[in-house]
């Protein structure tokens, strides 16, 4: 009994419950066809949302007002940069990845400088930097789409018995990130800052250093997403990151992380990312019109957040 209660009290469980219900509804509607294939598809696409979601989660955890809105343009810049440098050649794979990571790091440093040195609120800082980043991507790539190297395309779309390899890698990565959040000095500091920045500072935590690391981590993860996504979908385009702006925030919140900061978890991000993909799939399968689909998506997300975030008030 206590086990059951322990599980139900986990904030991330609700995203998995939602995911299962939505999947069940889809499968019942189709009479069982495609029950496993749809999971395969969900795994492959949720992977990308999970990577950016984890970065966004660390940022949101550092407290109210912290959010990274430059994720979409960082994805585009990293993808465009890497694809153009590699020019479709397998031999340049490492160079391309390096360039992608470097672009992410640069964006993170830049974002943090705006926030720290110019004292611009994070929402404004990352939003305005996103214009600069996207403009850089436009100037550099001119909107042209360059094919990814064969090896990258194969790696990102490889499957073994219906399980995407990339998804497995990212599940392992998520486990690592969960340990980083809960068991390391860095992760505990992030949580402490999110609970009370002043208290954290007084307790001797190097608050600004941690925030710097967090914004950089988010940007680097966005850059990795751009690199992998460009490989997966046959090239980088300027608008490839667009849908990850809201998605990155939504999966964090649906996954049971507190928007107010200081309380987060990694598994919920996987559940939420799968849930979001399956939700759209379910509504597509039902043949719901776009209007109905948007309304239902909104209602269902609010419902899940209400249940998942149904926190007892602090004692």
């Amino acid at each position: 009994m206590t086990h059951v209660r322990q599980i139900v009290e986990k904030p991330w469980i609700w995203s998995f419950v939602g995911m299962f219900l939505v999947w069940l509804a889809t499968v019942l509607y189709t009479g069982g066809t495609g029950a496993t294939q749809v999971i395969t598809a969900a795994l492959s696409f949720a992977t990308f949302t999970v990577i950016v979601g984890i970065g966004q989660m660390f940022v949101i955890t550092t407290g109210p007002g912290n959010v990274d809105l430059s994720i979409p343009s960082t994805i585009a810049l990293s993808g465009v940069l890497a694809m153009k440098i590699m020019g479709g050649s397998d031999a340049m794979l490492a160079v391309g990845l390096g360039a992608s990571l470097a672009s992410g790091f640069a964006v993170g440093v830049f974002n943090y400088m705006l926030i720290r040195l110019l004292r611009i609120p994070p929402i404004i800082a990352t939003l305005s930097s996103s214009f600069l980043i996207l403009s850089t991507a436009i100037a550099y790539g001119r909107g042209l789409k360059i094919k990814p190297p064969r090896m990258l395309a194969d790696f990102t779309s490889a499957q073994v018995a219906g399980v995407p390899i990339l998804a497995v890698v990212i599940i392992l990565f998520a486990v690592g990130m969960s340990i980083l959040l809960n068991r390391t000095l860095y992760g505990r500091s992030v949580l402490a800052i999110g609970q009370n920045m002043r208290a954290a500072r007084l307790a001797g935590i190097r608050v600004e250093r941690i925030r710097f690391a967090t914004y950089t981590l988010s940007a680097v993860l966005a850059a990795i997403t751009g690199f992998l996504l460009a490989g997966f979908s046959g090239g980088a385009s300027l608008n490839m990151g667009q849908e990850y702006l809201l998605a990155s925030i939504a999966v964090v919140v649906i996954g049971g992380t507190s928007v107010a900061g200081g309380k987060s978890n990694v598994p919920g991000i996987w559940g939420a990312a799968m849930f979001m993909f399956l939700l759209v799939t379910m509504l597509n399968t039902f043949g719901a019109s776009a209007g109905i689909r948007l309304i239902l998506t909104g209602i269902i997300i609010v419902t899940v957040i209400t249940i998942a975030g149904g926190d007892k008030p602090a004692r």
Binding site: T33, T36, Q37, F45, S233, G235, F277, V280, T285
Partner: peptide, 14 residues
């Protein structure tokens, strides 16, 4: 292209 790929991959099994 990428949004279409995602949407089609989702609905295709059904």
């Amino acid at each position: 292209q990428d949004v279409a790929q995602k949407a089609v991959a989702g609905i295709l099994p059904s």
